[in-house]
Design a protein around this nucleic acid. Sequence first.
DNA 1: CGCGGTGTTGATACATTTCAAAATTTGTGG
DNA 2: CCACAAATTTTGAAATGTATCAACACCGCG
Lengths: 255, 255
Amino acid sequence: MTGSISSNLYPFVARLAAHSHLSRDDQHALAALPNRTSQIAEKRDFVRLGEPVEHACFILEGFAARFSQNHAGLRQYTAFHISGDMADLHSVVLPNPTSGLQALTTTTILMVPHAALRELTRTRSTVAEAFWRECMIDAAITAQWVVNVGRRDARTRMAHLLCEMARRYGAPQTAHCTFVMPTTQENLADATGLTSVHVNRTLKVLRDEGVAAIRARTVEIFDWHRLQDIGEFDDAYLGPAPAAPRHMPNSLALA
Amino acid sequence: MTGSISSNLYPFVARLAAHSHLSRDDQHALAALPNRTSQIAEKRDFVRLGEPVEHACFILEGFAARFSQNHAGLRQYTAFHISGDMADLHSVVLPNPTSGLQALTTTTILMVPHAALRELTRTRSTVAEAFWRECMIDAAITAQWVVNVGRRDARTRMAHLLCEMARRYGAPQTAHCTFVMPTTQENLADATGLTSVHVNRTLKVLRDEGVAAIRARTVEIFDWHRLQDIGEFDDAYLGPAPAAPRHMPNSLALA
DNA sequence: CGCGGTGTTGATACATTTCAAAATTTGTGG
DNA sequence: CCACAAATTTTGAAATGTATCAACACCGCG
């Protein structure tokens, strides 16, 4: 691909460009951001409460969860983050974490210095706006999680979560689809505010109904329409679906 | 007050300045933002799903709630908003609402055109950053609501909510304190994911324990320390407490 | 004075939790 | 490639927190 740029930042530039208009110039400035990658072992927290950070963590590969916990030590996840998510972008404006970030599988993160990000936002208002917008989409998802946990029963909750993750993973929204999601039932419990035992029973119901099943870290949706129905799922809050999620868009290629 | 400026925007400039460093120049630019006020009647929705907006709504006076609803029509609030909150600031970057905004009492809002706000963020990166930061504090609160609804029992949930609102209202964090919060028990139910009947019983428990009571739209906290304890409340996520919440800070006075 | 919205209380039903044990899968070192 | 240990999933029975349904009390307000 003659003239195209290559950078660790690429998936994140693509993500931003999917939601905000960015000039080629903006995109190159983003792709040129200093960064280093880091491997996080399964189950390790890589952002901790009370430990201010000076770089933002993006998820290059793997699966992470944002979490808080109650006094009894029970965790409640407030977000799942997958490849391409700028999980920690908001730390640019709030460097003091109010929730932690944990790798649920071995995860490769990209660490980008706040200083460089802030320099970009200072000089490029369009980039600043794109960052802000990206964070607000995350916030919209969090708000949906409140609804999910607050006003839906276990079956509906699970269905909604599966729908959300299917959409975010870019799984084809066809009647039948499949995607890899490396969560344990305990992780799903911490995301839905249920116990892992009840997650198990709930999954069994969905499986027995022939709607969806999880086997070997793979979600298989047998009947997308019905799952969507059960989960009361409307994907509007997720923003526009990525057109070609895993490939380099033309806008980044230098003609 | 010779030389000081006066503007409907004032409380919001103060709020922003409490969390972000803004030059006097920035503050004046903010205060000069075009705006018009509007009275919203009790129970009216003033931001509705599927109706794109081109101005942001700030709460000048009154009480509002952000909400979504499940398929059965049950509402779940995802935020309460009080005087001084820029309830809708994020609409600048996401003009298509994914949740609604409802006035719970007669509420006076300030409507500020997106165009003007965007013009400010284009020319003043410090203001853009302040807006972004403000939105992220709201998002941190939403994340806490997920934890509240997901991993705490009714009594703990109510206690946490009362603590949060006390702090946000700027009620003195002394053993005994009082603040006006015009919510019905049904509103509290929609915020905590409980039924109004159970909210009633839960409040009775807190009352009988001598911890807190609500009478005539006034929250009375008898034992702040114990309420904080019960609610597992740590106010870090709310950002720095406003120093002198309801008065004009020196930084806005023109020497 | 009566009426609608709100708060209160009781009885019962039910979804989810808790506790416990067994089955299964996954990972690891020999 | 097997054997074993650890983690995860599965299932059952009993306990419990919250919802549901229903009636009544209260209060502000026209």
